[in-house]
Amino acid sequence: MNIRKSHLTKIYYFLFTYLVLWILLFEFVLPVNQVLPKPSIVIESFGSLWTDYDLLINFLSTISVIYISLTLAFFSVKILSPYLIEKNNFISLFINSLEWFSEFLPGIIIGLLLIFWFPESEFVEFIFAFTTAFTSIMIKFQNESENVDKEYILSAQSLGLGENKLTKLIIWKNVQPELSEHIFNLHFYLWSMLIIFEFIKGGLGLGVIFRQALDYKDLSAIFSVFLITGLTVYLGTLVLKYIRNKFIFWS
């Protein structure tokens, strides 16, 4: 945990240092160039994002798809956990076949292929996000449930706990610390995949703004959306951390 914490701190220091460098170099030292826009122009372009690119609707579309699908996927796995812990049912066999397939073709490539395969629609985008989150959380739950300390299971069984309740009250609780760590990674992965989905498919979302700004060669808009996305992902991580500290305090 400490290694992860110091790793994150390094990332924040890295980003902060480069932000300061960007302001100093591109605002005051270097002349206007095609590499990065002047910070003052980026700040001015925030206004045009609202008027020219429908920032509010696109922003709300992306974050609602990400966080609703993540929440629904988490609770779906929780509700289905007594069923999913058995590896010989249809859902488990199908998803485990995908896991096996991902040994040959990385998950991000499968995700990209699915993006091209799916038609363009807000509902399809939501289904894509939900399926990705559900699959990922389910595989992690199944793998971690094999590592649950047998002492907990023995104690609970000897107190009269049946199989269904054993999964819900003991195994599900036991895997929470690992699952919450996994959700941090999944959060980043979902953001990346959905921005790519929107960029390729169009419709609504921050990825669509990237696409339009690229078409107009509006470098400062691209940079502004990038900053907004980064800030939102960071705030999302803070909220996830708060939830973990509040509800998985024993981890």
């Binding site: 023995l154 104690s155 003991i170 024993w250």
Partner: peptide
């Protein structure tokens, strides 16, 4: 009959406080 067993590493559930642990059974 189910007879309570205290295993080799006594396991109190870390997500429950002392009272909740005792009331669990």
């Amino acid at each position: 009959e189910r007879i309570p067993l205290i295993p080799e590493n006594p396991s109190s559930f870390p997500w429950l406080n002392v009272k909740q642990n005792i009331e669990f059974g």
